[in-house]
Structures are given as C-alpha cells and as structure tokens.
C-alpha cells in the first residue's frame, strides 16, 4: 500500500495574536514565527502510518511550503513517515488553493504508483477545505471529505465513514482515492525518542518547478484565480442600543434590525 499524505506547515497558533498583516502584499508577516503541523494533518499522517503498519507499504509526505519549514516536516519523519517531499520554489509563492492543488497533484503523479492520498479536512490557518477535493480532481480519482473511519476492503476498494451535518454516512469507493480526514478520526502519536533516531536515516527531498515540469502559468500568484483584495484584523467592538416603546413596537424594530444584519433565516 503506497500512501501519500499532504501536509501544510502553519504558523504556531500560540503566536497568532501577534502575527502582523502586511497591507501591501496582503499576506501575514511570518518572520520569527515558528511553524507547526496542524492537528488534522497529523491525524492524516497517523492514519497513514496505522494503515502501513497493518498492511505494509510506504508513507510519503508531500508539502508545498518554503524551505524554512524543513524542520517542521522533519517531525513527520520522526513520527514514522518513510520519506518527505518538500515542493519549494520561489515561483510557487502566493498560490491560492487551485495553484497549490495543481502543484501537489503534479508531485503525486511524479511519485509514481499510489493507492491512497490522505489530507486533513482543512488547514488550521486558512481553513478553506478546498485542497483535498481539488487534488482529487487534478488526479481524476474519487474523494471523500470529513472522514472519520477508514476500512480497506478486498479488491482495491475502501469503505469510509464520513461526518455529515446530521450524523454520518458510510461510503465505498475504488482506490486510488483522496480521503480528507476529520477531527477525531484518531489521536496522533507523539514523536518518540526512538522515532527521532530512526528519522536520521530517512530523507527529505526538495523538488522545485523544474523537477515537476509544471506549467509556469498555473503556479504561484500568477496561476491563482483568487486574489486577496484586502486583509485586516476584525474589529471586535460591542455597541449596545436600547430599544424603547411598546413591546410590539420594540419586537418589530428588533426583527427589522436582525434582518438588516443578515442573521435571520431566509
């Protein structure tokens, strides 16, 4: 079983309160902020490691990120991944989810045969939840999101339990497939000291645009149809307003205000 796990190093959430926004580039200024792996990414890796440990095979971690995240990705090797491929190139910078998914999918194809691609449902920082489905579309394979349980079946199929708004749904699909795991699927293992020693023998490969032979027009900022128009920290100001008059009049006034605020169901 060859499993690819897509992960994304993100700024350490404990530093988020002091992450400054750059009004010109509309990006976060990440200098001096350590990176970590999000919980869902670790859940995806944990699931991959458990499948490999029970069925045999290989777990490859793929990540598109700056070179400065090598240390963060080392954690995946220490957790037990067999290899890591870091996709890093200046021209990848500024990518939206579509351009990111394109690069990830291209790298997965370049890795050769694979049976399963696992991702977190969404990243902890941006949280669009778009990358896993888009990667599946680029690879032209099925995908399931919000996955809570994975059972491998005979005949190259997989049965998954996925969370829905009202409960859960059981689905079966052919492999290869992309599965985006939901919180609670497992408790990711902690890195052991033995894992740290074992990681010394494993490799982090770095692939740039030329290694992947990607279309330059489809990567990075130029390849991103989504452009950030404005970025700002939300102002959390509370303002009280006292309604006066008869009860019926006050309720009518309140309802009008709620409708105007867009919080009433349509």
């Amino acid at each position: 079983m060859k499993i690819v796990v897509c992960v994304k190093p993100i700024p350490d959430p404990s530093y988020w309160a002091r992450l400054p926004l750059d009004p010109k580039t509309h990006t976060l200024r990440r200098e001096g902020i350590p990176n970590v792996l999000g919980l869902l990414d670790k859940c995806a890796l944990e699931e991959a490691l458990r499948i490999r440990d029970s069925c045999g095979g290989k777990v490859t971690v793929v990540s598109m990120a700056p070179l400065s995240t090598l240390g963060t990705l080392y954690q995946t090797l220490a957790m037990g991944a067999d290899e890591v491929v870091l996709l890093s190139d200046r021209c990848f910078a500024g990518a939206d989810t579509l351009a990111t998914s394109y690069v990830l999918a291209t790298a997965i194809k370049k890795l050769g045969q694979y049976h399963l691609v696992l991702c977190g449902d969404k990243s902890l920082d941006v949280g669009t939840g778009q990358v896993a489905p888009q990667v599946a579309e680029f690879l032209a394979i099925p995908h399931v999101c919000h996955v809570l349980k994975i059972d491998l079946l005979d005949g190259g199929r997989v049965r998954v339990k996925a969370k829905t708004d009202d409960g859960h749904i059981i689905l079966e699909t052919d492999l290869p497939a992309v599965l985006a795991v939901h919180r609670g699927i497992n408790q990711p293992r902690l890195v052991s000291l033995m894992g740290l020693v074992a990681a010394r023998e494993r490799e982090i490969k770095v692939w740039g645009a030329s290694d992947l032979e990607v279309d330059p027009a489809r990567v990075g900022l130029v390849g991103s149809p989504t452009q950030v128009a404005q970025v700002f920290a939300p102002q959390r100001r509370r303002r009280g307003e006292l309604l006066q008059g008869e009860a019926e009049e006050m309720v009518r006034s309140l309802m009008a205000r709620l409708e105007q605020a867009g919080v009433m169901p349509t």
Binding site: V36, L70, G71, Y74, Q75, A78, L190, V191, S192, L193, L196, A199, R200
Partner: peptide, 17 residues
C-alpha cells in the same frame, strides 16, 4: 538542531496532553 526542535515540540505536547 531540527532533532532538538522536534523533540521540544513532542515533549511540549506530551506535557500538555
């Protein structure tokens, strides 16, 4: 080193969890 940083992160998680 990377190894020390990962160790610190893991021990931090262990302590909190």
């Amino acid at each position: 080193t990377q190894e020390h940083e990962v160790l610190r992160q893991s021990m931090k998680e262990f302590g909190e969890r």
